[in-house]
Design a protein around this nucleic acid. Structure first.
Lengths: 344, 344
DNA sequence: TTGAAAGCGATACCAA
DNA sequence: TTGGTATCGCTTTCAA
């Protein structure tokens, strides 16, 4: 079976209709259950559908009809990051329960990949697009405008999105952590993250964090790991570098929990006691955060719910309903045992 | 914009052709780059394509032509399980690099969900299907046979698959762990997992494990957590129940690493020393396994590679190439510090 | 190198 | 309640 050969011969609606002795239109009405036919006719048609194993060609349906497809394009940066996997799970389940199918696009955190994927997915006439992130290439923006589809931008809340936005304020989440740590008495804060070419959610968190720390009379020393994913090892080595630089740091805020775990591992290796010698804080509240002997101080976001809410927003927009421009799903800080107990 | 309204007016090939002063066919040839036109013509057409922002309607292309779509349906049990997220990542990246798009289906480990999803996705004329798992409903099998598409069954290697199979032998992986633990001197083994309605990979692992243990003169006490996902908490409570049952167990084999982490957490709470009082072994080698203070004894599978290989198999099958019926991607046991050191 | 016409499988619209 | 016919955007086929 070569790609060039004719596709497998399938049963068409016309064949079902002929077998049942009715017109295509009548068969079509029966299959759509839109009424306008007798019970007798219905039975005849359905009998042939079962007999012939008829599977409708939805491509033709969308093509001929005046509806869009039931595809929803979903772009996700990467699935190695547990939180995005959860978001996707929430999206796909909810979308599926409304009769839509997810067409996945992994963008590797670059707007170029996103642009290429948008171009492709738009050619399939999707019902809408759910995009992770709020920055898009110029050409991507042009295409999206021209397509005129419902667009849900998720992750970092956007007060002036293309269409609607669902997520949390990453700036605020960083700010809250900064304020919390300052409140515990920390002043010499460190930050360990990966480097970003473009403005993104982690950058927003760092900005909020720095603002809160500086407002509280503290300072932040930053350590970026170049060209790396925000995972365990960069957290380990980033911590090593930060501490080797001689910076006097009493607590480190990490880009996410995975990196924080790496940092904790380094501290253990270097015989640095947590939280006595140094405090550790993460972001995301990964399920395994509770595996550790010490509960990690972090910030909890319901990623599954973020996904579900995004899908609900999409379904609403497809149906032409209005939906809040910016839907904040909220977060809460999780005080753990990797930072000092509340001073008072 | 209601669902019932006409779809957004888009630019069609005919409009591009007219603007360029050529026929539809000529424009079509230029866009496909199949040759048979002058450079001058090509330039004229492409200029109008850019000017008008033409996006081809691939639905119409597939519909009119004799090719299938570039969709590949991919069914995954769930994404809460980190290993499946990695598999999906590998699949989508590789598929994307070959010009195919992933249409996702989350089956929640049930063949009923899978059947419903297969029915839907087939109606979109996909180029092929990648299915996680080897058991399918009767009706699903009928549909797959009728569709006559390339099918790649992944995860548990299948010597007589529908089409081709990519994965590892879960039976063998369980057997190897059983043999290893017996080799360390353990004889009273426990197993903690979730309950399964259907035969699945975890069941195969347990069977292989039990065989090896019994061959080695040991025995296995099983503890199943009903109706639960194979994650941290069931591991915790399953361990508690197993030990509370009074079973004398010197080592516990868990369905996967997440459950093993839960078990370790319980042991810590109950002041049971690992590995002095009890040994712990998992499956899957999750990245965080190396986060723990003690390296978990587990079994490593390259999930990303499993995904990539599956996608390569799919691409090969779509092109009509032959591909090994069963492609074993292998695994290796990771001796950790949660079990005794080698006795000798 | 180019173009005209038929047709893919369904639905919309109008007529009976 | 039913059916005929045009049509969606593109490719195939055949002719020029």
């Amino acid at each position: 079976m070569s790609e060039k050969e004719r596709k497998i011969q399938k049963i068409s609606l016309a064949e079902v209709a002929q077998a049942a002795g009715v017109s295509k239109m009548t068969a079509s009405r029966v299959l759509r259950g839109e009424g306008g036919y007798s019970e007798n006719t219905r039975a005849k048609v359905m009998a042939k559908v079962d007999l012939l194993g008829y599977v409708p060609n939805r491509l033709a349906t969308v093509f001929a009809g005046d509806t869009n497809s039931t595809f929803v394009g979903v772009s996700i940066p990467d699935l190695g990051n547990e939180v995005f996997a959860q978001v996707l799970e929430g999206i796909d389940r909810k979308l599926g329960s409304h009769g839509y199918q997810t067409v996945l696009g992994l963008t590797q955190h670059t707007i170029e990949e996103e642009e290429a994927w948008i171009r492709t997915v738009l050619s399939w006439q999707p019902a809408g697009l759910i995009l992770t992130g709020r920055s898009h290439s110029r050409r991507a923006l042009d295409m999206l405008r021209t397509a005129g589809l419902p667009i849900v931008e998720i992750w970092d809340l956007n007060s002036s999105p293309l269409d609607v936005s669902v997520g949390i304020s990453h700036y605020d989440s960083g700010f809250e952590m900064g304020r919390y740590l300052v409140g515990l008495g920390y002043r010499a804060l460190g930050y360990v993250g990966t480097s970003h070419d473009t403005a993104n959610a982690a950058t927003a968190r760092l900005e909020g964090f720095s603002k809160a720390v500086i407002d509280g009379g503290g300072s932040v020393v930053r350590q970026f790991c170049l060209h790396d994913t925000a995972s365990f090892y960069p957290g380990f080595y980033g911590t090593e570098q930060l501490l080797a630089s001689g910076a006097a740091v009493d607590c480190i805020y990490f880009q996410n929990d995975s990196m924080a775990f790496g940092g904790m591992q380094y501290c253990q290796k270097a015989a640095i006691e947590i939280p006595d010698d140094i405090g550790i804080a993460g972001w995301g509240d990964m399920p395994v955060a509770s595996v550790l002997q010490r509960r990690l101080t972090t910030l909890h976001v319901s990623h599954l719910r973020l996904g579900q809410t995004s899908a609900e927003a999409m379904v609403a927009r497809i149906s032409g309903e209005t939906y809040p421009t910016a839907k904040n799903i909220g977060f809460h800080l999780v005080p753990g045992a990797t930072t000092k107990r509340n001073v008072l």
